[in-house]
């Protein structure tokens, strides 16, 4: 066995131990990128090996929290992939409008950038007060941050450009107040959003949704865990409902693929067929 193989064994043991002690299951995350983030965490932690880290992580919740921060990738932005939000606005919202009340699940919502983008879009389409978004993530610290809806002011320029590319016609500055170096999102946008912790690797699905978003999270999972997450989404979606994945994520080859059709090639917006 070479050094890499030995480290692989150590990582497997560490993940197994974390699952048994803390209930967080990272055993089915895609190996290469998980290893990269674990290695970065290990270097910062000052511990010499994953075996040494294991003894600490299992006994010290603080150390585990740091590791959790290292593993979960809370990278997001408002209106990421503007063409996706444009398609959502033009192709999906008209269908949503036919319902008296809309239920939406945004899984892996990170610091809320995506759900607030969705809220902007829904409000502009006249749906304020007619929806509830269940915004979930595995990382409870990032959820608390999401609830605040405060972002670095310097990001607003990029968010504004993306907003305009989604077909947004208002002045994006109407949606936030600048204070020092931060942008505080308008209170109204928070109406109808419920932030809650939920782990796609271990928890059950949510109730009847018309729209499910899970973008840029499945790429971190092995095929088996992707299947698990997708079957949760499928169980939570009514016929005629929509499932949205990230630009480089697809249903093709997955168990539930046959029950869905992509609304237009490359949109990664899938509609559940009526049976």
């Amino acid at each position: 066995m070479n050094a890499v193989d030995i480290e692989d064994v150590e990582i497997r043991l560490l993940l197994e131990a974390i699952f048994r002690v803390y209930g967080y299951d990272f055993r089915q995350y895609a190996a290469a990128s998980l290893r990269r983030r674990l290695t970065q965490w290990l270097q910062k932690s000052g511990l010499r090996s994953f075996s040494e880290a294991q003894a600490r992580v299992l006994r010290d919740r603080e150390v585990f929290s740091e590791l959790l921060e290292g593993i979960t990738v809370n990278v997001s932005e408002m209106f990421r992939d503007p063409h996706f939000f444009k398609a959502l606005r033009e192709e999906v919202v008209p269908h949503l409008k036919t319902f008296p009340f809309i239920k939406i699940w945004a899984a892996g919502c990170s610091a809320g950038e995506e759900v607030y983008s969705l809220a902007v879009l829904l409000c502009e389409e006249g749906l304020a007060g007619h929806y509830r978004i269940y915004a979930t993530d595995i990382n409870e610290r990032i959820l608390r941050q999401a609830e605040e809806g405060i972002y670095p002011l310097e990001k607003m320029q990029q968010f504004t450009q993306s907003y305009q590319r989604t077909g947004g016609k208002r002045d994006f500055a109407d949606y936030y107040t600048a204070r020092y170096d931060r942008a505080i999102l308008a209170r109204d946008l928070r109406n109808g959003i419920v932030f809650a912790s939920h782990n796609l690797a271990v928890d059950a699905g949510l109730g009847e949704m018309q729209l499910v978003l899970c973008r840029n999270l499945l790429i971190y999972f092995t095929p088996a865990l992707k299947e698990r997450a997708l079957s949760l989404f499928d169980g939570s979606l009514r016929s005629g409902g929509f499932l949205c994945l990230g630009t480089k994520e697809t249903l093709s080859g997955r168990c539930i693929a046959g029950a869905y059709s992509e609304i237009a090639p490359g949109t990664r917006i899938y509609r559940k067929k009526y049976v």
Binding site: A30, A31, A32, S33, N216, I219, K248
Partner: peptide
């Protein structure tokens, strides 16, 4: 590698993408 994604490869030879910073 697609724009805006890191490209990685698994031991099996399967490609993987990430949106890490």
């Amino acid at each position: 590698a697609p724009a805006n994604y890191h490209l990685l490869v698994e031991k099996s030879g399967a490609l993987a993408l990430s949106v890490d910073p």
